[in-house]
């Protein structure tokens, strides 16, 4: 290699340096993040566990309703709603997707790999945007497959006198799509939460707190003025609005989806602000 007369020599690879355009920069970061995502084993085990759990639970619940249908009282039979019953797993599957999102960043912080990432791409917001975009697409794909499979398997267990539904029913298709959207937004919420707390343990505990403890704690409180202006806006209840048919005290699906998206955007904003000022 020739020694240049300038301060720094011209290294061999420099000739092939890609052009400086926002598009080429963005594409490079996406490629890098995709390689990392692809090779993050805990991500795929979490996704697989979430799939297995959802499908299994839907199967179990629908099977037990089918076999015990005659033991249900008339009132319980009248209240039975096949779509709601087969999608009930969504209350819990949200945890898997939240954890999946959080793991994408907390594992990088946990191992210290994040420093290598930021050395290669000092444009930190770009890194986060690439992660969010990939997780959003991947998450929606996984969620749609999971929810549809669980729904179909669950419905296949219901027959005879037990009411059942098919995806041809627009209400069923809407609920499945709403459920998938809920899981995707939860994954993104987990991602940005992970950026805020940087620790897998805290992120997982927080997800359990928000998605399982809080609703149990406050959903059945007397529905006074304060309740009506707070409890329906819990992430889990907004999700409920997206896939459940009985939402008399809750928010309508469209505003629920937008509010949940707003949560994601606010958390993302907080994450970005921290990311820019925080030492890596």
């Amino acid at each position: 290699m020739p020694i240049g007369t300038t301060d720094t020599p011209m290294p061999a690879a420099q000739a092939q340096r890609p052009p400086v355009t926002p598009l080429s920069r963005g594409r490079a970061v996406l490629a890098s993040e995709w390689i990392k995502l692809r090779s993050l084993r805990s991500l795929w085990t979490t996704a697989l566990a979430g799939f297995g759990f959802s499908v299994g639970l839907s199967f179990l619940v629908c099977s037990s309703f089918q076999s015990r249908w005659h033991t249900l009282g008339a009132q319980a039979q009248a209240h039975f709603h096949p779509i709601d019953i087969s999608l009930g797993f969504l209350q819990i599957t949200s945890l898997f997707f939240g954890a999946l999102g959080a793991l994408v960043v907390t594992t990088e912080y946990g191992t210290g790999e994040i420093r290598g990432t930021f050395v290669a791409t000092p444009q930190r917001p770009l890194v986060l945007a690439a992660k969010a975009l990939l997780l959003g697409l991947l998450g929606f794909g996984l969620a749609l497959v999971t929810v549809s499979a669980a729904f179909l398997l669950g419905q296949s267990r219901l027959s005879g006198a037990v009411p059942h539904a098919s995806l041809a029913d627009p209400r069923a298709a809407g609920a499945v799509l709403g459920g998938a959207l809920y899981l995707t937004l939860t994954a993104l919420l987990g991602l940005f939460l992970g950026v805020l707390v940087r620790s897998t343990a805290i992120a997982i505990s927080a997800l359990f707190g928000v998605f399982t403890v809080l609703p149990v704690l406050v959903n059945n409180l007397p529905k006074g003025l304060v309740w009506r202006h707070t409890v329906p806006y819990l992430p889990s209840n907004l999700g409920f609005s997206l896939w459940h048919s009985h939402i008399e005290f809750l928010v309508r699906p469209m505003p629920a989806g937008s509010t949940l998206a707003l949560y994601v955007i606010v958390t993302a904003g907080a994450g970005l602000a921290l990311l820019r000022t925080r030492d890596g």
């Binding site: 037990s64 309703f65 249900l72 319980a76 009930g88 797993f89 343990a201 997982i204 403890v213």
Partner: peptide, 20 residues
Amino acid sequence: LAALFGVLLVLPLMVNLLPG
């Protein structure tokens, strides 16, 4: 954490989905 919270918090939610 997942095991502990799974047993304490998720199990009852799962069972509640079953027929009353």
